[in-house]
Nucleic acid binder design. Structure first.
Lengths: 155, 155
DNA sequence: ATATTATTGAAAGTGATTTTCAATAATAAG
DNA sequence: CTTATTATTGAAAATCACTTTCAATAATAT
């Protein structure tokens, strides 16, 4: 059964209006790509995907747009240790919940997991509060990643 | 009062012997530098530090040595978001305990903290066990970092 | 001593990301 | 609606941390 796609304006539209940025075609296309993938795409991968349909959108624009989206908080930028940055929409269709990543150090596979997130969140909140008090450090975000061997890479 | 320095062979010596690598002067010098700093040095910073005393040790060797030390588990490699990798001895003088990092996104300052590590460790162990079971993923290491504004950067 | 293997450093190469800059598109002003 | 102003774009060139190459040197094994 095909997923129900809402027809209204996408959720990022007001964010652009508020911020005073122009929601141009390259920006929309890149947001749509991120919106429709389960993968952790790199700038070049995004470029190649859209290049088939929009051959006039340059790689430079992809990089610049991703930077902007990260600055706006619409996109998260990750480093999984393979030299290239990878990007994920920060919110989106219900399916995407807050998650962290398991990174296979052998094959590079990335597994999103949402399990244990609640306990994690609770600990993080306590930790952030404590750190804030002790170091007067205002935590705005955190990064948690596990490295190891995935199913298939264990011998 | 000057810190008491043990005179015996440094702790990494047996690790080299066991592994069958040669403990050459560049390697010793780099380990000593890492051993005597509280900072999170980059390869180039290490190179510049030792270059004053050992001008014949090249940057390439610094990179290669750091890679080796990371592989041997003697050194941790971090990415704090400023393009260059940064390195820390994985063990050392008692003062250095297992810690994580607070990263100021404005000035780049790195704060080591050891507080809350115990609760953290406990949660991590449970999480790792759970992930291992659910995804059959063998966790070998983890990364936790908090981003935000340090004391001085909060206006 | 001599052979074998590991380590080194200078120079050249790599590759993801940035910068430059002139052209174009979008909004604002008149 | 024009025209002025400003934002956005893309191609090409530049950057820069890091790697690779390769011949020379140093360390261990024979």
């Amino acid at each position: 059964m095909p997923r129900c796609r809402r027809m209204g304006p996408p959720w990022w539209e007001p964010r652009f209006r508020e911020a005073g940025f122009r929601l141009t075609m390259p920006r929309q296309v890149i947001l749509e790509v991120l919106s429709n993938t389960e993968e952790h795409l790199s700038a070049e991968e995004i470029y190649l995907l859209i290049h088939k349909v929009y051959p006039n959108i340059g790689l430079t624009t992809v990089y610049r747009t991703l930077d902007l989206l990260v600055d706006m908080g619409l996109v998260f930028k990750f480093d999984f240790g393979d030299k290239r940055a990878r990007y994920e929409l920060s919110q989106g269709p219900a399916s995407k919940k807050h998650h962290h990543h398991l990174i296979c150090t052998k094959c590079g596979r990335i597994i999103d997991y949402t399990d244990f997130i609640d306990e994690e969140r609770e600990l993080l909140q306590r930790t952030e509060a404590g750190l804030s008090e002790k170091y007067n450090f205002k935590v705005t975000s955190h990064l948690i990643q596990f490295y190891g061997l995935c199913d298939e890479c264990q011998e």
